Computed example of a mutant assay.
Amino acid sequence: MENVNLSDGWIEYTTEANKMDKNIYMCESASFGLSYTDYYHGWTSIVVCCFGVVANTLIIVILTRKHMISPTNLILTGLAVVDAMVMIVYIPFSVHLYLDKSRYRHTYSWAVFILFHANFTQVLHTISIWLTVTLAVWRCLTISQPTNQALLNSTQRAKVAILMAFFGSMIICAPMVMMFNVQLSPPEDNNGTFDTNRTVWTVQKSGSNFMKQLSFWTFAVGIKIIPCIALTFLSCYLIKAILSAQKRRKQLKANGNQNDRTTGMLVSVVILFIITELPQGILALLGAILDESFLKNCYGKLGDLMDIVALVNSAVNFVLYCCMSRQFRTTFCNFVLPTSFREGLNIRQ
């Protein structure tokens, strides 16, 4: 066993014998993906994760301030929590797998951690996906039903929606979690003969072909394609609402309000999410339709590239909020800057 490629929970071990196979599906971009993995992914992922953990912690602190609490901000807080947890777990994984290459990686404890990392991050990332869908749906309802604001402004209902995203994601991920387990494998030397002096623990697929197909289709359709399609329609609706509001303000010669800026910020979050997740969904869908040679030669070798794109998307929300929300920016400055410095900059409390 030489390599382990991880992307959103999928684990693919590759042997030297498999590398010599003549497969049908080949990806020209796979060589770039492997080069990125060998030279850049380790340090890049650690830097992004460290920044993302700090950034998402600041988001949690700012959005839970008393005057910032709202249904929308509660959902954004939940999103920040799961994104931070994904990156916290990814740091030791990246250090051990990509930077500390001298250490033997086929111990039982490492295999258990790989299995935990794959399942834990997959469930958290799925929660993040469906929280984003929840966020878009909530904003669309707020815009389309202005007479029901008392109903939609309930933080208790927002908490229920967050819990539904949490538990629903666990159910969706159940087939994938059950498909992998830790197994003791016979080690081979470079000549292909067994070396009985070494113990090799690996994470392998288990279960029937039906369960394997179910897990692939669940991942491709239930976790990637359906949320992306839903978010595409929801973002189009939100953009249309923003343009209509701008047209009305132009006719009335009025300035923009906080609601429009909030909607614009949420649209940006959703669009970034679609750009990140849709290509992964298409590749995963092709992996479910085609045979395993596509997964090995295309999807698996692009795994680290897809990982870093997802990590960057989880880390940049703080920058987006600071750029597009005056209330968030002001609250952040009030939280981190000394009073005398804020007065010099004329930042309102």
Rank of each mutant, 00 (worst) to 15 (best):
N334S: 11
C322K: 13
L337S: 05
F318Y: 08
V319A: 12
N334T: 04
T339Y: 15
Y321I: 01
L320Y: 12
A310E: 03
V316H: 08
F332R: 00
F332H: 03
F318Q: 01
V336R: 09
N313R: 07
V319S: 05
C322L: 12
V312G: 02
V336I: 15
L337P: 10
C333K: 13
S314I: 02
L320Q: 11
Q327K: 11
C323M: 11
V336H: 06
S314L: 12
L337W: 15
F328P: 02
F332T: 08
R329Y: 14
V316S: 02
V336M: 08
T339L: 14
F332W: 09
L311T: 00
N313F: 01
A315P: 04
A315F: 10
T339E: 15
M324H: 07
N313G: 00
R326K: 14
N317S: 04
C322A: 12
P338R: 11
R329M: 09
S314Y: 14
L337H: 04
T331H: 13
Y321H: 04
P338Y: 07
C323F: 15
T330P: 00
Y321Q: 02
Q327M: 13
F335I: 09
Y321E: 00
N313H: 02
T339G: 06
L320P: 09
F318R: 10
Y321R: 00
R329S: 11
N317G: 00
N313D: 07
V319P: 02
L311I: 04
Y321P: 00
S314A: 12
F318M: 01
A310H: 05
F318G: 02
M324F: 15
F318E: 00
N313L: 00
F318L: 01
S325Y: 03
V312H: 03
